[in-house]
């Protein structure tokens, strides 16, 4: 079985280190989007703590990108690429400065939406609602080849509106894909505003109806994220973790503002944000 999330809890030193990395990553997210004059900082800052915990404690490593037994981490909301690149770069998968400088630059692998050419990225996404199906495919393949690994899919909450997620969830439950864990970045905002106004949804009820176990956590608490991801690995059903987060988390004037879904800061705002 996958050797991920081995310790029962994170210790204080680990939480301190993750907090330090989180601050660094948030700065990098803002720098790369401002430098590129485009990108999606808001959702990146709500997902970053989940990404850091996953890529740090799942059974993955830069020297194991082709290891059949590695865990698979699928980013479904590909527009949170600044967060994915920041987490991977700051955890040693590549030089983070290349990602900051090359973000959305023609010819660079660090595209606006995640692509497989970036080490650590298992699937290119951008069209929303594809990640859980992708995760099911990887889980099914592991069953066929006999490789034991976990599959983590991080999705946005807005993209849960797409019907394909329901198709994928039904399949995961039918085939008992207990190694599949879906983490929803529940920041409750999408381009047009509140997800509840755009299209009401009850994710707990929907996923339970499909046959999933569900867990609700604070998506900015490293200890809660870690504990939920560890617990999900022991479940007899696929698991959906609803991670309550804050769009733009970490910069007071960005928090809970949907305009930062797809708007970078100006140079002046960036200076203010990272001061």
């Amino acid at each position: 079985m996958s050797e991920s999330f081995i310790s029962e809890h994170l210790n204080q030193d680990e939480i301190k280190e993750l907090s330090r990395l989180s601050l660094k990553c948030r700065g990098d997210i803002l720098r790369m989007t401002t430098l590129a004059k485009s990108g999606h900082p808001g959702g990146s800052m709500s997902s970053i703590d989940i990404y850091l915990t996953l890529w740090r404690y799942a059974s993955v490593a830069p020297d194991r990108v082709s290891d059949p037994a590695r865990d698979r981490i699928v980013v479904s909301h590909g527009h949170t690429s600044p967060a994915a690149y920041s987490a991977l770069g700051n955890l040693g998968w590549f030089d983070i400065d290349r990602a900051v400088a090359g973000f959305r630059l023609a010819g660079s692998p660090f595209e606006g939406h995640v692509e497989r050419v970036v080490p650590g990225i298992e699937w290119g996404t951008g069209n929303l609602g594809q990640g859980i199906s992708t995760g099911c495919g990887m889980a099914v393949a592991g069953r066929v080849t006999g490789d034991s690994f976990r599959v983590f899919v991080i999705t946005g909450d807005g993209e849960q509106q797409k019907g394909q997620n329901a198709e994928a969830a039904r399949f995961a439950a039918k085939y008992g894909l207990t190694n599949l864990t879906v983490i929803v970045d529940y920041n409750r905002l999408q381009i047009s505003g509140s997800i509840h106004d755009v299209m009401p949804q009850d994710l707990h009820a929907e996923y339970r109806a499909f046959g999933f176990e569900t867990i609700e956590i604070d998506g900015h608490s490293f200890s809660e994220i870690y504990h939920a991801l560890r617990l999900a690995g022991k479940s007899s059903r696929p698991v959906m973790i609803l991670a309550k987060t804050v769009m733009g988390k970490g910069v007071s004037f960005m928090e809970n503002k949907h305009k930062y879904h797809g708007s970078p800061l100006s140079a002046e705002e960036l200076t203010k944000a990272i001061a």
Partner: peptide, 17 residues
């Protein structure tokens, strides 16, 4: 569930199957 199946089958095909 063709949309899901198409995406799932594509992903599975990259995994040694």
């Amino acid at each position: 569930q063709e949309h899901h199946t198409a995406a799932m089958a594509g992903a599975a095909s990259t995994q040694g199957v």
